[in-house]
Every structure is written in structure tokens, then in C-alpha cells.
Amino acid sequence: MIKTRLTPKQKGIWALIAVVVFIYALFPVVAIFANSFKTPADVGAGTFWPQNWTWQNYEMIFVGEAQTLFLSALRNSIGITLISTVIAVVLATLCAYAIARLDFPGKRFILFTALAVSIFPVISVVTPLFNLWRSIGLYDTWLGLIIPYLSLTLPISIWTLSAFFKQIPWELEQAASIDGATQWQAFRLVIVPLAAPGVFTAAIIAFFIAWNDFVYGISLTSTEAARPVPAALAFFVGDSQFEQPTGAISAAAIVVTIPVVILVILFQRQIVSGLTQGAVKD
């Protein structure tokens, strides 16, 4: 299937295909990137690229009047997403280890539950949580988002990790102990290096999902105390009702897209294998 030598014509066709796929995948990102460098006048001009490139939108969200709004949202997003990812991955690692290595009744049911939770409409659970959080004081707090985020991050982590752990050659652990390693050494030197990539992959995918959340973010927060970036973007208003904050929103959108792009570039192979092995929702 893979030919070592390509004719010029084949090369041309593949180059063309690559260009088409790149345009398809990146066009909207480039468009909002261009927006983020436009002055308000350029935004109204309706051209693709800015007439005069400007940093003013980035200045506005990092040091200007939108600073408190954006920076607090960024802090909330990073903190809440990372904490819920770490909790989910720790719980899921234990759970997936048990599912892959131990035989106990109910393990198929646990996998089924993870699947059911992952297809759950978020909106169906957000109303009761909204109500409950308001009465017990979790409304508009970090913890009030970290807990529901587990419903997003935990199922995918369990699926990805149990698929991954099933492929690990666990006999190596025994082999190591026969060779004189203590149980702890065998675990640390043999199993951890084999399992770590799976755990890491699960963490990246879980991070993407939590980072993407919008419904919990707008429903369970009301101020800068806990509002994450996607929700903050939706409620971001311009200086006056006549001036759309297009440039500032675009700049903020680009800032929160950068970590995604970096992760994708560095770990595309792991993400692809994690997604297709776990094969749970995005």
C-alpha cells in the first residue's frame, strides 16, 4: 500500500489532497485568528484579513478593561479542568486496573454505567444540580463545577484506560519478580512505564472534554468566582450596545485554543489511539 517511490503525478495529487484537508480543518480557526488582529473598523469592513494588524484586542483581554473578566475566567477554566481531570484519571486508573486484571461480578455493569453516563444529556442533570447547589452553597464555586465535570471526564477515562490496560503484558510483572525484583520494584520499573502512556492519553482526552464544557459553566456559575472561559465568552459584552466585542472575543478564543493546538501537535498519535480504543463520545 505504501509505495516508496511516488511518481510526480502521485505527489501532486497527495499535495492537493493535503491542501484541501488543511483548509477544511483549519479555515474557521484561521478566520477567527484574523479577526483577533482587527481594529473595530476592520471588523466592520468585512474582509478576511485585517487591513491594519493590531494587538489591541489582546491588550484589552490581558491588561485592558476586559482583564479581570478574562483572566479570572482563564484561571477558573485551568484550575477546575485540571483538578477534575486529575481526580477522574486517578479514580479511573484504579477502576480500569480492576476491570482489566481482576475477575469480579459487576465489572461489565461498571463499563455499561460509564457508557450510559457518557451519553447522558448534560441539560437533564443541570437543573437539579442548579437547585441543589444553590441550597447547599456550591453554586458559583470551583467545587460546584469540579463535581459535575466528573460526569464528563470519568467515563471516557475509564473506557480509554480499561482498553489500554487490557493490552499491557502483565506477565512481565511476574517475570520481573522471578528475576529477583521485589513486588514494588516490578510494579515501578515494569508496569508503571507501560501504563503511564495510557494514563497520560486518558488525561489529555478528559482535559479536552472538560475544557469544552459550556452547559455546566453557564448554568452553575454567576460571577467571576467560578465562571470558566466558554461561559465568559458567551456573556462578554462590548463597551456599548452598538459595539460588538468581536475582536476581544476572537482574541480570547485564540488564547484558549493555543493549549489545544499544542497538545494536538505533540500528542496526535496518543490521542488518536486513545480515542479509537476507548471509542467513547468526544
Binding site: 484537508v21 480543518a25 477567527i32 479577526n35 466592520g44 468585512g46 478564543a253 485554543t257 501537535i265 490521542i271
Partner: peptide
């Protein structure tokens, strides 16, 4: 190719919505 395709997958849905909205918006 995989890297390019993963960008829409990883991007925040709200960001994607804004990107498409601004492309079609009558003002911008």
C-alpha cells in the same frame, strides 16, 4: 493530516460557534 484533523476535535465548541458566526455575521 491527523494533526490538522484533530484541531476541530479539540477546539472548544463555543469557539467554533463564534468562528462560524463571525464568518457569516452581517456586520463582520
Amino acid at each position: 493530516l491527523r494533526t490538522a484533523i484533530l484541531v476541530p476535535y479539540g477546539i472548544i465548541t463555543v469557539v467554533s460557534a463564534f468562528a462560524w458566526y463571525y464568518m457569516f455575521d452581517i456586520n463582520s
